[in-house]
């Protein structure tokens, strides 16, 4: 399965809905999308991963890269994920301490901490 990406604006946040598989082949597409958003001035991103079937370290690297980019503009990058098999990858790499992870898009959009 390929990667699907769509974006929408909710208030001052940009929600990126990701679906399919994020791996060494598809991750560059996600990277391009995040870079483009930041270049266009969207510094508060919510990446909705509820429809992601597979995520590997290349995908993690892209998300970390996105986080660095928005932070350079005092922005934020929040994740939405309830899938245990995806959350496990964030846990074993220690990245749960780096990303705010929310259970719903509404929750992520309203978060201000």
């Amino acid at each position: 399965m390929d990667l699907s990406l769509s974006t929408r604006t909710v208030g001052d946040r940009t929600v990126v809905e990701v679906g399919g598989e994020i791996d060494v082949y598809t991750a560059p597409k996600l990277r391009e999308q995040l870079v483009e958003l930041v270049n266009d001035g969207s510094y508060h991103l919510v990446v909705d991963m509820e429809r992601v079937d597979f995520l590997d370290s290349t995908g993690l690297g892209v998300l970390v890269g996105g986080l660095k980019r928005v932070r350079a503009h005092e922005g934020s990058l929040r994740l939405v994920c309830n899938q245990e098999r995806i959350l496990k990858i964030f846990r074993i790499t220690g990245l749960t301490k780096v990303f705010p992870i929310h259970t719903s898009v509404d929750d992520a959009v309203q978060a201000t901490d």
């Binding site: 370290s57 993690l60 690297g61 990858i89 990245l95 780096v98």
Partner: peptide
Amino acid sequence: ALDPDADGEDEMGLAV
């Protein structure tokens, strides 16, 4: 991942 000078994906892959 957080080392700004590193292309950390290789190390992160091994860590996973």
